[in-house]
Amino acid sequence: MNRVTLRKTLISCALLGAVLLLAIVSMSLLGSERLPARASLCALASLGSSACGLTQDQFDILFQIRLPRILLAAAVGGSLATAGAGYQALLRNPLAEPYLLGISNGAAVGTMISLVFFGAIEWTRPLLAFSGAFAATFAVYRLARGRAGATPERLILAGVIVTTFLSSVIVFVTTLMDATRIRSFTFWLLGDLSGSSKALLPVAITITILGALTLTLHARSLNLLMLGERDAFDLGVEVGRVRMVVFLVASLLVGSSVAASGSVGYVGLVVPHLARLSLGSDNRISIPAAALGGALFVIVADTVARTIIAPRELPVGAITALIGAPLFIYLLKRV
């Protein structure tokens, strides 16, 4: 494979971006209610200014329910894949992902606390999710710090400890909930994009874009970090600073995703892997590609989740797991 150039990156990203746009448009034609395709396309093309013959209900379904949900899926998928790519580069481990380090569980615990103790107040949910993600990152980082700094082995070990601890906390709090809450919380825990907090959508999208951009802007440093922290240091990378940036940005990305939609698994693991396999390990191309690919993956998975047993719904995390796990096993064999 040739080395990555600006041209190659722009072309790949433009292609992926085009596919993503196509997916957004085409998936918005699918749902538990049938919408007339031509009229819907016309309305989408007019960006909502014209109803093109859709009834008010159909228009609302398309623009108030489906499109925001698809965009949220894109934001969540993009965030998780970007965070995964960042962790894999930083920890020099192609199998690292947000869950491994307990970040998602931290965000989930934060959300649970907001549900159980501040149930009525909406904005506590994302706030406590971020706090949970940061707290988990902090805990992992402190646990992993040894004399030689936070080596990947120690980080992963610390991550596993934090993850399992937080998992038991989640199980414990779940047992304190009553049956109704448990049912809806369990669903959310597996990834649920049906939440209608539209106010948070622009925030989620902004975070995804800013996060992906920030990590891409550190891509060259990450390329060197991927081949060894000591070597990266020798070659001029400010290892401590880059590590902190990646951790913070990735926590923000994961926290925002979990707050919006619970834990959607396998995206942060499988998508960056696929991106690297097809485009090379250079982060300048694989991070933006992972972001776009992650968005695509979750949009498709969510469309399956909301149409396959319509009018009922499955949690999107179940679909990403059903697709992601076999895919991952296949990838493992290739590596």
Binding site: M1, R3, R92, N93, P94, M226, L227, G228, R230, D231, D234, R276, G280, S281
Partner: peptide, 11 residues
Amino acid sequence: AQEAELRFPVT
């Protein structure tokens, strides 16, 4: 360096 960590493919 004495050796490189080559966990990712690079030319």
